[in-house]
Simulated assay, not measured.
Amino acid sequence: MSINNINSNLGKPQVDSQKLNQQQQANNQAATQASNAKAQSTAPRQDSVSLTQSAQQLSQVQKKGNDAPVNQEKVDRLKRAVQSGEYRVNPEVLANKIAKLEAELFGVKS
């Protein structure tokens, strides 16, 4: 037994395919125009970088450090002493040198 056309499409509005196509085209055109307007109104941005005075000074110090001569013989001697455990640090002398360096860096006279 087969049942055909139970509701006979009652209560359902008929879809006009031509009208539907026109609405879709209008929506697509509106979206395209909106994206074109946005692309035209957005000017290309120019990136820029600015360094603080501290960063500029740090960069200069790094360049000077890279250009400084290295006593490779002394570096090798210290490296061997550290690896063998013979290198000893005098904590008082180290603390004084650190304090002196900080005073020079921050302009404090000790």
Rank of each mutant, 00 (worst) to 15 (best):
S2R: 10
V93R: 04
L10M: 12
I3P: 07
R77D: 14
T42M: 06
S2L: 09
Q83D: 02
N21K: 12
V49D: 06
V70A: 11
D16V: 04
V75K: 01
E104Y: 03
V70Q: 12
S2F: 07
V15E: 12
V49G: 07
A81P: 01
K79I: 04
N66L: 07
E73R: 09
Q57P: 10
S35R: 08
S48V: 09
M1S: 13
K12S: 06
Q46W: 00
R77Y: 14
S8G: 12
V82W: 00
E86G: 10
K79T: 14
L51F: 15
L10V: 14
N7Y: 04
R45P: 02
V93T: 13
I3Q: 13
K63Y: 06
K63G: 15
N28C: 02
L51I: 14
V89S: 03
G11Y: 00
I98P: 01
N4Q: 14
T32G: 07
A37I: 03
P69W: 02
G11Q: 02
M1W: 05
N4H: 12
G65I: 15
E104V: 10
L10F: 07
L78K: 08
E104C: 06
L101A: 13
N21D: 11
K74C: 05
V82R: 01
T42W: 03
Q29D: 11
T32L: 08
L94Q: 04
L78I: 10
E92H: 05
N9F: 13
V15T: 08
L58I: 13
G65T: 14
Q14E: 13
N96T: 06
V49R: 06
P91Y: 02
G65A: 15
Q62C: 04
N71S: 13
A43Y: 08
P69I: 05
N9D: 14
E102K: 01
T42C: 05
A31I: 10
M1A: 11
K38M: 09
P69M: 04
A43L: 08
L58D: 12
I98M: 07
T52N: 14
P44F: 00
Q18C: 05
Q24F: 06
S54E: 11
Q46G: 11
V108P: 13
D47W: 09
D76N: 15
N28E: 10
Q22H: 00
E92L: 08
T32R: 05
S110R: 10
N4S: 14
Q24W: 01
V49E: 08
S17T: 08
S59D: 09
S35C: 06
A34L: 03
G107I: 00
Q60D: 15
N71D: 15
Q29P: 01
D76M: 00
V70W: 00
S84E: 07
N9L: 11
F106C: 04
V49L: 09
K19C: 01
Q40D: 10
R80N: 11
Q72A: 13
N66D: 11
N96P: 01
Q33I: 10
K38L: 11
Q83G: 01
Q33W: 00
K64W: 01
N9M: 09
P13Q: 06
P69K: 10
S2A: 15
S48F: 12
N5D: 15
A43H: 06
